[in-house]
Nucleic acid binder design. Sequence first.
RNA 1: GCCGCUCCCCGGACGGUCGCAGUUUCCGCGCAAGCGGGAGGUGAGGAAAGUCCGGACACCAAAGAGCAACGCGCCUCAUGAAAGUGGGGGACGGGAACCGCGAGGAACCUGGACGGAAAGUGCAGCAGAAAGAUACCGCCAACCGCUCGCAAGGGCAAAUGGUAAGGGUGAAAUGGUGGAGUAAGAGCCCACCGCGAAUCCGGGUAACCGGACGGCAUGGCAAACCCCGCGUGGUGCAAGACAGAACAGGGGAAGGGCGGCUCGUCCGUUAGAAACCCCGGGUAUUAGUCGCAUCUUGCGCAAGCAGGGCGCUCCGCUCCGGCGGGGUGAGAGAAAUGGCCGUCCAACCUCGGAAGAGGGGGACAGAAUCCGGCUUACAGGGGAGCGGCACUC
RNA 2: GGCGGAGUAGCCAAAUGGUAAGGCAAUGGUUUGCAAAACCGUCAUGCGUGGGUUCGAUUCCCACCUCCGCCU
Length: 113
Amino acid sequence: MTQREDFARVKKTGQAKAGRFIILSTLPDPALPTIRTGFITTKRCGKAHDRTLLRRRFRSLVQAHAPHFAEIRRYLVTIARPGASQATFAELEEDWVRQARRLGLLSRPDQKS
RNA sequence: GCCGCUCCCCGGACGGUCGCAGUUUCCGCGCAAGCGGGAGGUGAGGAAAGUCCGGACACCAAAGAGCAACGCGCCUCAUGAAAGUGGGGGACGGGAACCGCGAGGAACCUGGACGGAAAGUGCAGCAGAAAGAUACCGCCAACCGCUCGCAAGGGCAAAUGGUAAGGGUGAAAUGGUGGAGUAAGAGCCCACCGCGAAUCCGGGUAACCGGACGGCAUGGCAAACCCCGCGUGGUGCAAGACAGAACAGGGGAAGGGCGGCUCGUCCGUUAGAAACCCCGGGUAUUAGUCGCAUCUUGCGCAAGCAGGGCGCUCCGCUCCGGCGGGGUGAGAGAAAUGGCCGUCCAACCUCGGAAGAGGGGGACAGAAUCCGGCUUACAGGGGAGCGGCACUC
RNA sequence: GGCGGAGUAGCCAAAUGGUAAGGCAAUGGUUUGCAAAACCGUCAUGCGUGGGUUCGAUUCCCACCUCCGCCU
């Protein structure tokens, strides 16, 4: 996602769940060919180094888990909360997967640990 | 052996695997634009940071002159394109062994944006009489009034002159110590000490130093205005260059370029007319392309590899001119370095007399046109030099 | 990325190098049957932080920290 309007539409009409380190927000759109994803790391999350690291880890999470989604055609926004830069990748992944389950993104037979 | 200071270097390593970005190449589909897939090699820092300096580069017609404005400022050597950095020296400020009866001098240590205060202007609250020219108290002289006293003389008040020795104020009060001198005093004079612009002599490449001479005026602040010398045109890659369909259609009649001002200079205009002309704004190109990642030769289909040049950097040698060897050359575009696994090394923790064993797992931090500096952040490791302490010979 | 600007009490803010104005808020009192309003008081451990120049710095100089704005 690159356009400001896309982020605004997901925020206004989509669903969101907040965890300890991240907020996950999504909006299904059957018109899309595949998933369209965005990451938000505000200045409160840390300096430039920490924020780029968070974005890279978020991208890695989407690459690992998006293939197991029940419906892939959707907007997906991952927002970092203050304190996320102190978390390890495993902690981020646990939080992210929990919020994804709460939103019903992951299909039933998924046994990803 | 331990501790400290200064300088320099490094700042996790190796491998596998799934991905990402640029690039080269191959395969498939397609008339093409392009789409999909495979393979190769490459891919963050010493500060990439702050944006504090200096440049390259680009545009402003050319980048000219003067003024204004801004910046810099001891001397010398080295280095450098410049900014800057380093060595040595000087003066000044702070501390100070020691010397002197004292004023004071001073080895040595240390600090810094350190031209000029004898061109001019300005500033100094409060306190104090007075803050660049001054008399409050005090001291002295002469005069005068009242008063106490037999008298010698004393007290009080007013006013004139001399006096910077004493008191008090202040950050700072017009040389200091001792003597002579005087009505009282004073560089007024003498000895010593200090200070000192110009002149002369001597030393030093120079800043400056020493002496002679003369005197005690001319206190401080220029990171106040200013003066002297030197330097700078402005804007910054969001600079700027190029391509650009279709549609709508703005401004321009004499000035404008010129962004602090003037000179100078360039383009253009004065019958009418906005058709031509000139200037300019907006959208699309999935936020276009270039600027934007070193040059060259050989081999290879190409990435690449090898040789040479260039830039940066490290090491060694040097007759100081250089020579030899090693390392290195990223290029995204809302912006590529991430995830996982294995082995090893250091901080740190635990056990232990020790050897060692187990745990543990890296500091600050992410390129954005490029380069050189400065500043700031930083776990830990290594090297060199210097100093101190203890021990041994 | 580049270029500018600002920081003074809880808030808004002024000050030529010489005792840090003023307003709001807070708080104590007067007034009132109780309040409001009004009136009288109080409130800066040093002017974002650290150095320097100066007798003296909020002010001048240097280096940092934080915040804001402009340029495609």
